[in-house]
């Protein structure tokens, strides 16, 4: 375990009058795999979206790789929102995979994977293509390179989405319920891809209810409820001997 990749302190977030995050503290070390669980509406996805500044935060601070995400500290100590360009640059090192895949439907699979390296990093087309082919190989879909996303199954689309995120060589990967929109028989292939990724030492934060995945590869499991972290711990202890009543209650529903 190396230095902290994610350091979130006292993160607050409200949508209008609804307070979704009520002071979240979470640290993730380099190479760590953290699984966040919790009932729907507990703020897990919102928290994940705050980690790459897809949502602004109202209070607290989030540091990724030692620098603030989305904000900079003014001379008086307050946090000021960064420009669009700066935020975009910061997001390059944070990969994200979404529940609904969000592949670009007007591009082929390989174009999806090449898009950001070419447009954002300015990598040469043939270099980006080779790297994209390697990544598609890695997620087991090299033969789908020239196909449009609409022709793929949900599981295949999600694996392409993982390859697309990896193409930017992120330091950390965020997974927002990556298997929730999948038919049951397609969940396994996506989890296998994520497990392989975890074994390469990638730092990962996964919002998921896949207990098997959490037990097998997670270093830490976290339970969020009503905008706070209720409990966190090693998966073995978390699942077999939860301390908090709300954790017990939640686990009894999903186990």
């Amino acid at each position: 375990m190396s230095a902290l990749v994610i350091n979130a302190e006292d993160v607050h977030k409200s949508f209008h009058s609804l307070e979704v995050l009520k002071g979240i503290n979470l640290t993730v070390a380099g190479g760590e795999v953290v699984v966040i669980m919790g009932p729907s509406g507990s703020g897990k996805s919102t928290f994940l979206r705050c980690l790459n500044h897809l949502e602004k935060i109202d209070r607290g601070r989030i540091e990724i790789n030692g620098h603030f995400i989305g904000y900079r500290q003014a001379s008086d100590g307050r946090l000021v929102e960064e420009s669009d360009r700066k935020v975009a640059r910061q997001r390059q090192e944070i990969g994200m995979v979404f529940q609904r895949f969000n592949l670009f439907p007007h591009m082929t699979v390989i174009e999806n994977v090449m898009e950001a390296p070419i447009q954002v990093k300015g990598i040469a087309r043939d270099v980006a293509r080779q790297r994209a082919l390697d990544l598609l190989e890695q997620v087991g879909l090299p033969e789908k390179a020239a196909v449009y996303p609409a022709k793929l199954s949900g599981g295949q689309q999600q694996r392409v989405a993982i390859a697309r995120a990896l193409a930017m060589d992120p330091k950390v990967m965020l997974f927002d319920e990556p298997t929730s929109a999948l038919d049951p028989e397609l969940v396994g292939e996506v989890l296998d891809t994520m497990k392989t990724l975890a074994r390469t030492g990638m730092t990962m934060v996964c919002v998921t209810h896949e207990v098997g995945f959490a037990r097998e590869v997670a270093d830490r499991a976290v339970l969020m409820d009503e905008g706070v972290v209720v409990e966190e711990g090693k998966p073995e202890a978390f699942f077999s001997a939860p301390q908090h009543s709300r954790t017990k209650q939640f686990l009894s529903k999903i186990l």
Binding site: L54, G95, M96, N102, A116, Q119, A165
Partner: peptide
């Protein structure tokens, strides 16, 4: 779909990109 914007932003694209 707003999810398209999220995905593109998450890849590091600027608003104009």
């Amino acid at each position: 779909d707003p999810g398209q914007v999220d995905a593109a932003k998450a890849l590091g694209m600027t608003r104009w990109q």
